[in-house]
């Protein structure tokens, strides 16, 4: 499989890079693929929290770079999902502790042993971002439907182009159909008008997401989670299956129509 090393990035912080990484990696592991998620956000690690593995970390990526342990030894095995491994970031060092060539070396060592390697990129466009993108075969850009996020994502796409990477794929995260219907949020078309990328998926806003993250259980583990369902679809699309992207439209209920008619919120 050619597209085995996937980097997830966004430019802007807080749009859901780590959440998407954790969920898509978990979804693929649930399907039986051997998956490793590498946290490249050195100094501000949180992929371990989203996966619920924070209390099992002994060695991290900086130990691997320094040669203290081989990569396999630093991997943390997920207790809930078989086949899922995490290579955690160091919390005590900063981005300069891992150079692009170090990450390329680690990825090359892991490449034969895994079906998929996910790299969770840090926010920003400095060296940490470059380190995370360098080894990647495929890049996924996560953007929220808001101008600030879109502009940052656009910048990142430009930088990836300059690094001669293939055109990134787009995941729109935290779309709220209710707000779109009211005209308070940009819709998918508006985002695509600026970014003009291949759309890999649209993840709707899910009010339970915060609690999933706090509990350290990815949303894809829950059948009833609306965001989880779409994240599972994204994993399927990465495998090459053609699943149509649902139209996230919202129609007002009878009561809401009535309320609007009488001008009360």
């Amino acid at each position: 499989m050619a597209d085995k090393v996937i980097c997830i990035t966004s430019g802007k912080g807080g749009v859901g890079k780590s959440t998407v990484t954790a969920n898509v990696a978990t979804a693929l592991a649930m399907k039986g693929y051997k998956v490793v998620a590498i946290d490249a956000d050195i100094g501000l690690r949180n992929l371990d929290l989203v996966l619920g593995l924070e209390n099992r970390i002994v060695y991290d990526i900086v130990h691997v770079v320094e040669g203290v342990v081989p990569p396999e030894k630093a991997l943390v095995k997920d207790k809930k999902t078989k086949n899922l491994y995490l290579l955690p970031a160091a919390q005590t060092k900063d981005k300069s502790a891992v150079k692009p060539e170090d990450l390329v070396k680690i990825v090359e060592e892991l490449r034969d042993k895994f079906d998929f390697i996910f790299i969770d990129s840090p926010a920003g466009i400095e060296e940490g971002f470059k380190t995370a993108v360098t080894p990647a075969d495929t890049i996924i850009v996560v953007a929220n439907p808001e101008m600030a996020s879109i502009r940052d994502a656009d910048r990142v796409v430009g930088l990836c182009e300059a690094m001669q990477k293939p055109e990134p794929k787009l995941v729109i995260n935290r779309l709220d159909p209710k707000k779109v219907a009211r005209g308070d949020m940009l819709d998918v078309e508006d985002v695509l008008q600026v970014l003009s990328l291949d759309l890999l998926g649209v993840v709707p806003e899910d009010k339970n997401m915060v609690s999933y993250i706090n509990r350290g259980e990815p949303a894809v583990l829950f059948e009833d989670s609306i965001a989880g369902k779409e994240l599972r679809n994204i994993a399927e699309r990465l495998l090459g299956k053609e699943i149509p992207i649902p139209k996230w439209t919202y129609s007002e209920g009878f009561l809401e129509k009535l309320k609007r008619l009488f001008g009360s919120e």
């Binding site: 940052d152 656009d154 910048r155 430009g158 600026v194």
Partner: peptide, 22 residues
Amino acid sequence: LRSGDKITSTGDVIIMGDVNPG
């Protein structure tokens, strides 16, 4: 032209594409 790209010319510029915000 994506955010962060910059094009300069002493004369005319013709762009077969978009000029994105930024």
